[in-house]
Amino acid sequence: MSLEDLNKKQIVSPDGEHFEVDPMNDYFCQDRPEEVKPVNKIVERFYNWARSESLWILGFGTGCGAIEMRPLMTPRFDAYRFGVQWRPTPRQANLLIVSGYLSTKTLKRVIRVYEQMQNPKFVMGLGSCTINGGMYFDSYNTIKRLDYYLPVDVYVAGCMPRPEALLAGFEELKKLIKAGKAEGANEYANKFDWYKKNQKEVIRDWDMPDYNW
């Protein structure tokens, strides 16, 4: 996708009909994200329990941490036991595991993916490189801390973290969700301008709408 694709354009349908397409309005929702407050405390506590026990990971291996995802989901470690499942589309996922360093090119995709996920959504930063750049502290192409660009709920340190560390991370995340402290989506909505400013500072060719749902 490039910036030109976002301009208005004339489209001819197969029947010869002409119509104008404005991608920014027609394909994307331009509204800012909004904070959604939980309605009822008791209901919310029940919901949080369900959310924590049913974590659907987005199958997006952003970095080398993705290599430990297979052992995680296979016989040795079997994260399914803890209600952790794997989902291929961001719409249905509610946990984004940023598995390792993010190059700016991937960061752009990760932001889009994150924004397509629905509230409530959680982010887990995997590996030292999401915390402070790790061994890529002097790399010109990777971001150094993830929490400036996306609200991170749990970091799992290590390079690379073992599957046991990831399982511990899930447990920690479950505790946070049950306590109602994993409100990353609302935080993203509240500090939207700050996050966008940071993201745009790093991504030099910003060729997408500011918010993709």
Binding site: C64, D138, S139, N141
Partner: peptide, 14 residues
Amino acid sequence: VGYLHRGFEKLMER
């Protein structure tokens, strides 16, 4: 490609 580019060959030089 390039989603995983970390510039190893550059980093190794320093």
